[in-house]
C-alpha cells in the first residue's frame, strides 16, 4: 500500500510537470466548455449538465484520457527507467496500481474544474445537488475505466503513439460502436452488445439513476483491465 501511494504521488507529480498534460487539459476544458456553452447554456434550458454530459463528455474523454495516459508505462520502457523501477523492491501490481491512482487523481483535478459549470448555472436557476453527485459518480467510474484501458495499451508497447491509437479504437468501440450496433440487431446479440456498451451503463448516471448494476459493471471492467496490465508487465520481464 505504501509503495502504491509513493508511486502514485510521483506519477501525479510528473503529470503536473508535463507540457503534454497541460496541452491536453486545455483541449479538454475548451471542448467541454464549448459543448456546455452551445448545448446547455441557453435561456429556457434546464439548469443541469445533462445534455453536455450525455454525449459530449464521453466523446471528449475517449480522446483526452488516452492522450493523458499514453506515457504511463510506455515512457518507462522507452527511457529504460523500468529497469531501475523493477529492481527496486516493488511488485508489478504495485507499479500498475500506482500509475492508475496517479492518473485517477489527476483526472479528479480535471473534474473539479468542471464544477465551474454548475456554479454558473446556479446563478440562473436551482441546481439539483443529488443529480450533480450522480453525474460525478458516473464521470469518475467512466474515467477510471478509460484510464485502465489506456494504461493497458501503454503497458503493451514502448511507443506512445501506438498506445494512444489502440486506446482510441478500443474505447470508441466500447462506448459508441457497440451502442450503435445494438440498435440494428434483434434478440440476444442486441442484449449482449447493450450490456457491454459503456454508453448504456453511463446513461442512467446522467439521468440521475444510481443503479448498483452499472457501478459493478464499471468497477469490474476497470479491475479486469488493471489485472491484465499487471499480467502483461509480468510477461514482458520474461522476454
Amino acid at each position: 500500500m505504501q509503495n502504491i501511494a509513493t508511486l502514485a504521488k510521483r506519477e501525479l507529480g510528473s503529470f503536473f510537470l508535463s507540457p503534454i498534460a497541460y496541452a491536453v487539459n486545455a483541449i479538454f476544458l475548451f471542448t467541454i466548455g464549448l459543448a456546455f456553452a452551445l448545448g446547455t447554456f441557453h435561456s429556457g434550458g434546464e439548469a443541469s449538465l445533462r445534455d453536455t454530459l450525455d454525449f459530449w463528455m464521453l466523446l471528449i474523454l475517449v480522446f483526452v484520457l488516452p492522450m493523458l495516459c499514453m506515457r504511463l508505462m510506455s515512457e518507462e520502457f522507452r527511457n529504460g527507467t523500468i529497469e531501475t523501477l523493477m529492481t527496486a523492491p516493488v511488485t508489478e501490481s504495485e507499479v500498475i496500481f500506482g500509475k492508475f491512482f496517479g492518473a485517477l487523481v489527476f483526472y479528479f483535478v480535471l473534474l473539479a474544474t468542471l464544477l465551474l459549470f454548475p456554479i454558473i448555472l446556479s446563478m440562473y436557476g436551482p441546481v439539483d445537488i443529488k443529480l450533480l453527485v450522480c453525474h460525478y459518480i458516473g464521470m469518475i467510474l467512466v474515467g477510471a475505466l478509460y484510464i485502465s484501458v489506456s494504461l493497458f495499451f501503454s503497458t503493451l508497447t514502448r511507443h506512445q503513439v501506438i498506445a494512444v491509437l489502440f486506446s482510441f479504437a478500443v474505447l470508441a468501440l466500447m462506448t459508441f460502436a457497440s451502442h450503435a450496433l445494438a440498435t440494428k440487431l434483434e434478440g440476444w446479440p442486441r442484449v449482449v452488445l447493450q450490456q457491454i456498451s459503456v454508453r448504456t451503463h453511463y446513461h442512467d448516471f446522467v439521468r440521475g439513476v444510481l443503479d448498483m448494476n452499472h457501478c459493478i459493471f464499471f468497477v469490474s471492467m476497470t479491475g479486469f483491465f488493471l489485472f491484465v496490465s499487471v499480467k502483461l508487465l509480468e510477461v514482458r520481464r520474461w522476454q
Partner: peptide, 9 residues
C-alpha cells in the same frame, strides 16, 4: 544500470 535511466522531470 548501464545507461543510468532517470526521470528527467
Amino acid at each position: 544500470s548501464e545507461s543510468t535511466p532517470l526521470y528527467p522531470e
